[in-house]
């Protein structure tokens, strides 16, 4: 695979420890849970400017909850989230609001406000935070929708468009305030492979043109391998981060923790690996029940 070697080349320079890109988000010893239940502990990672950072993990490991902590919707039990120099949870509501003013969020189902048209959805953040008049807001909203591939759908209601389009509209809304950081919660879940790939291309495009930093929660291997520049793997069993780094490198690194590697191994590769093992005369995992 030639793409893998390319990725490796870029990576070796990155992982040399001389990454001087600006630190956007830095998470230190985060513990998240509900009441007395601890969902994850000791989570630490850095997101740098221009990163496409993936939070990976199996279902139910707390990826989305971690994202909610980063977005200010759920308070952590311990630890720090730093945006630049700002202690996100150390300050009050106003601090968080100031930080989130420069962030955009795409929720899992798009989370468009169902009583408003797409143009109004994209326009509301502008209406709240800028002095633009209605005409200008409408124009900006149209532009953002066009960027997301929805030109001409300004006056549709969210219930009138398909799930994939809703996601794109959600992305347009997330872009409304020209954010520096974009949070995407499972952007390609429920999309067909082609739309999913188009969305990946769009993300790369936006990173390169707007200079935005992306934090993406996903378990879509295709996206992870094609666009991730850095990642953490959350393990549901140990309830902590068990692997970090560029996924393309992680999957080939023999030191990667085994559950993380299993997660990153594609189905076809897994079959190949298993048949190789069978050829070698090894027994399948559960031969004898009794």
């Amino acid at each position: 695979m030639s793409t893998d070697t390319d990725a490796k080349n870029t990576l070796t320079t990155k992982s040399a420890g001389t990454d001087d890109r600006e630190l956007r988000i830095s998470v230190r010893g985060l513990q998240v849970g509900y009441g007395s239940f601890v969902l994850m502990r000791d989570v630490s990672f850095d997101v740098r400017a221009g990163d496409i950072f993936f939070i990976m993990g199996g279902s139910g490991c707390g990826k989305s909850t971690l994202l909610r902590v980063l977005m200010g919707l759920k308070s952590p039990q311990a630890g720090q989230v730093l945006y630049g120099d700002t202690d996100f949870w150390g300050g009050g509501e106003d601090t968080r609001r100031r930080v989130m003013r420069h962030a955009g969020v795409l929720f899992q189902g798009g989370a468009l406000w169902s009583s408003m048209t797409l143009a109004e959805n994209v326009g509301l953040p502008l209406q709240q935070y800028t002095d633009l008049d209605e005409e200008e807001i409408r124009e900006q909203a149209s532009l953002k929708l066009a960027l997301a591939g929805l030109a001409g759908f300004e006056d549709y209601y969210p219930s009138e468009i398909s799930g994939g389009m809703r996601k794109r509209a959600g992305l347009a809304r997330a872009l409304a305030l020209d954010p520096r950081i974009l949070f995407l919660d499972e952007p390609s879940a429920g999309l067909d492979p082609v739309s999913s790939r188009l969305l990946d291309d769009l993300i790369l495009e936006l990173r390169d043109t707007l200079g935005a930093t992306f934090v993406i929660v996903s378990h879509e291997l295709a996206s992870i391998f094609s666009i991730a520049s850095n990642s953490v793997f959350l393990d549901a069993h140990t309830r902590s981060v068990t692997a970090r780094g560029n996924p393309a490198q992680l999957v080939r690194d023999p030191h990667t923790e085994k559950r993380a590697r299993l997660f990153l191994t594609r189905g076809d590769e897994r079959e190949a690996a298993e048949s190789a093992r069978a050829d070698a005369g090894e027994s399948p995992p559960h031969k004898d029940i009794a």
Binding site: L73, W113, S114, L124, Q128
Partner: peptide, 17 residues
């Protein structure tokens, strides 16, 4: 309640509204 289910309320919060 339905807006809560669809994360529309969260979307408002993250926009500082």
């Amino acid at each position: 309640g339905t807006m809560q289910v669809n994360e529309e309320v969260d979307a408002l919060s993250t926009l500082g509204i």
